[in-house]
Design a protein around this nucleic acid. Structure first.
Lengths: 210, 210
DNA sequence: ACGCATACTAAGCGCTTGCTTAGACTGCAC
DNA sequence: GTGCAGTCTAAGCAAGCGCTTAGTATGCGT
């Protein structure tokens, strides 16, 4: 062989890293394969030695990210933990992952439309698993009488959405970097303002409801 | 003239509506000018009779959306209202706008990268105005001793981010449509779970802080 | 009736895109 | 040393892109 297996692996992952940075910065469709190749220090054709298409790069990034996020959320807290502790740990771990891996997370969460139908289906399975886990955590609390949530699916959506959006709060170059600031700190303040200080006055539906 | 001013206006707005739908569905870079023209029932060249470029369409949509959102947030509550009521009304109005105008809101909030540097600057001014308004609402509560927020800028970011993300919860075709469901309802449930039931146990920074 | 401004289209131009091809280089097996 | 498998590049292809051009249709002012 021309090079060792380690070198080949290095070229593959270097391309994935380059694609992640480019997709996060410009978006999938605004990124060219020439851009990816240049970031990895290769010629445009080299991309296709290691990957079959630009879309495959996106899929690999997306799958890797979803697997990591699912792993983080699952190992955040044991199933038999106290409901609120468990929910807290789950949301915190999920939000923290998105803060620390905000570059990859941007691609993982905001470039799903660009996936091929087949790949999108495979990613959708993992997203359903994440949703199911969060829903189970909330449902467990409801069943034990600790939470009072009329719309479990809606609350699951809102919680995941909020935690995912944390990825958009941070940049590598700016002051608000995930290394120096805890990912959940502004989240905590948000809740302090909206829920903690005047718990009886949370947002309400003016057309009825609670 | 070939047609009346009303018809000309109609063609212009029809193109903007077509572009909004296309950008929201596929994203700016994945949308072709031929796609926009087809949605407006015109030939590809007709786009350039009324607008100078595809990017100009995005700019017009973005400016219109930011102006509307700024108007909504400013007229949500009077300056001398009680701090918590005022914050509540502001966040609620902003979130509700994003729920009701979720298609335009997606373009307005998630396609900013595609703007030209000049246009991006003009939009950035409006975004700073929105940020400033929300920050003032929080600051007023802090000064009056009603809120205890260490990081006002971070909390502003988190609140706006949360309300903006509401646009991603709704679709026109699905069950969760903004017409039938109040935009803030899942938000309310989210806060009920995280802040209301156990107000002393909001997310906290494990490395110190509150 | 006629000139003219406006709305619109058919055709296509120049360019960039994702990706391929043909071939050079490298280091291991034997 | 020779063959070969694997890595990479220079060059370029077909297709699709944003946008332009040349020309037609339409209706108003005079």
């Amino acid at each position: 062989m021309g090079e060792s297996a380690a070198q080949r692996l290095d070229a593959r992952t270097r391309l994935i890293a380059a694609a992640t940075a480019a997709f996060a910065e410009r978006g999938y469709h605004a990124t060219t394969t020439r851009d990816i190749a240049a970031r990895a220090g290769m010629s445009p054709a080299a991309v296709y030695v290691h990957h079959s298409s630009k879309e495959e790069l996106l899929f690999l990034i997306s799958r890797q990210g979803h697997d990591a996020a699912l792993d983080v959320i699952r190992s955040a807290s044991p199933d038999d933990a106290e409901p609120f502790e468990r929910l807290h740990a789950t949301v915190h771990a999920f939000a923290r992952w998105h803060a620390e891996h905000h570059t990859a997370a941007r691609v993982v969460q905001y470039e799903l439309r660009a996936l091929s139908p087949e790949h999108r289906q495979e990613i959708a399975e993992r997203r359903r698993a994440i949703d199911r886990h969060m829903r189970d955590v909330i449902s467990a609390g409801v069943e034990q009488g600790v939470f009072d949530v009329p719309d479990v699916a809606g609350t699951t959506l809102a919680l995941l959405s909020l935690a995912v959006d944390v990825a958009r709060w941070y940049q590598d170059d700016g002051q608000r970097s995930a290394e120096s600031v805890d990912g959940a700190a502004p989240l905590r303040d948000l809740l302090a303002v909206l829920g903690r200080q005047r718990p009886q006055l949370v947002l309400h539906d003016p057309r009825g409801g609670v």
